[in-house]
Nucleic acid binder design. Structure first.
Length: 263
DNA sequence: ATGGTCGCGGTGCGA
C-alpha cells in the first residue's frame, strides 16, 4: 500500500497534475491539503474514472482537505473533537479529515500557519495542535495496535536543518520553541516521523516559496510530515519526496511525500 | 529592511 500527502494549493487549478501524479507514482491513498475548494466545487469526475473515491472537507476558498483512495474509504470524520476555529465563524475552517483505508487510519491535516510571532493566529495554531495531540493520544489509548498516520502540512520545521537558513527565521513562525514543542508533543504521544529515518541525506525539503526562485536555488523547508503510530511505523518500507512535482510551470509550492507500507 | 509569486474571485488577503 502506497500513501502520499500533498499540499496541492488549489485542487481545481491543479487537478490535471493530481491525476497524473496518482498514476505516475501508483498511489493508493492521497491526503490533500489546501484544496481551496468547497465540497460542492470538487473536481471528482476524473478521479472516479481512475478508480478513486474521494472524501472532501472544504468550507471556503482558503483551506480544505481531502482523502483520495482506491482501496476504500470508511468511517470518514471531518475535523476532530474540540478542533478550534479562528475569527469570524462565517470563514469556517476545514483543516482535518480522517478515514480508514484498507485498515489504515489516515488523517489529512492542514495545521494553521500562525502568520507571525505575536499574531493571535499563532496562539490559535498552538491551541489547534494541542487539541490534535489530545485526540491523537486518545486514539492510541483506545487501540494501541491500530495503524494510524497523521499526514499533512504541519507548518512547523522541527529542526534547524529543516530550513535553508535558520538565521533568516530568527523572527519567524514555524521554528519557534512553542511550535516545535507542540510538534514534539504529538511525537511523544506515540507518533513517529517515518520519513526521516529513510531519507538520511540533505534532500528533505517539502516546500519552496514561490518568491525569489526558491525552488531553483533549493531554498526550502521541511514542513510536511507523515507521523505514524507504532503499528503504522512497523509497516513502513520506504519513503520519498517527489521533487519533480514541484518543478515546471503550474506546480504547487509543496512537493508530495510518499510512504510505502508492507501488507 | 524590503520585495518577490501564487490562487481566489473579481479587491486585496493569505500563504
Amino acid at each position: 500500500m502506497r500513501i502520499a500527502t500533498w499540499n496541492v494549493n488549489s485542487v481545481r487549478s491543479r487537478i490535471d497534475r493530481v491525476e497524473a501524479f496518482l498514476q505516475r507514482q501508483d498511489v493508493d491513498v492521497l491526503a490533500l491539503q489546501e484544496t481551496k475548494a468547497r465540497d460542492d466545487q470538487w473536481p471528482t469526475m476524473g478521479l472516479q474514472a481512475l478508480g478513486y473515491e474521494v472524501a472532501t472537507y472544504g468550507l471556503n476558498q482558503w483551506n480544505g482537505v481531502a482523502i483520495v483512495s482506491r482501496v476504500g474509504i470508511e468511517d470518514v470524520q471531518q475535523g476532530f473533537d474540540g478542533m478550534p476555529g479562528y475569527g469570524d465563524p462565517v470563514a469556517a475552517e476545514a483543516r482535518a479529515i480522517g478515514a480508514t483505508c484498507d485498515g489504515v487510519r489516515v488523517w489529512s491535516l492542514y495545521v494553521p500557519n500562525g502568520r507571525a510571532v505575536g499574531d493571535p493566529h499563532l496562539d490559535y495554531k498552538l491551541a489547534w495542535l494541542e487539541a490534535l495531540r489530545t485526540n491523537a493520544a486518545g486514539w492510541l489509548a483506545d487501540d494501541p495496535d491500530r495503524a494510524v498516520a497523521l499526514t499533512g502540512d504541519w507548518n512547523i520545521a522541527p529542526l534547524d536543518e529543516d530550513v535553508f537558513d535558520i538565521a533568516q527565521f530568527a523572527k519567524s513562525t514555524h521554528v519557534t520553541p512553542p511550535e516545535r514543542a507542540a510538534f514534539q508533543a504529538v511525537v511523544d504521544a506515540g507518533y513517529a516521523d517515518v520519513v526521516r529515518p529513510l531519507l538520511p541525506g540533505p534532500e528533505v525539503y517539502t516546500y519552496w516559496d514561490y518568491y525569489r526562485q526558491r525552488f531553483e536555488r533549493n531554498r526550502g523547508m521541511r514542513i510536511d510530515f507523515v507521523l505514524g503510530s507504532p503499528a503504522f511505523a512497523a509497516r513502513v518500507t520506504g519513503a520519498r519526496i517527489d521533487r519533480d512535482e514541484r518543478a515546471g510551470t503550474g506546480a504547487s509550492d509543496h512537493a508530495p511525500v510518499i510512504v510505502d507500507l508492507s501488507d
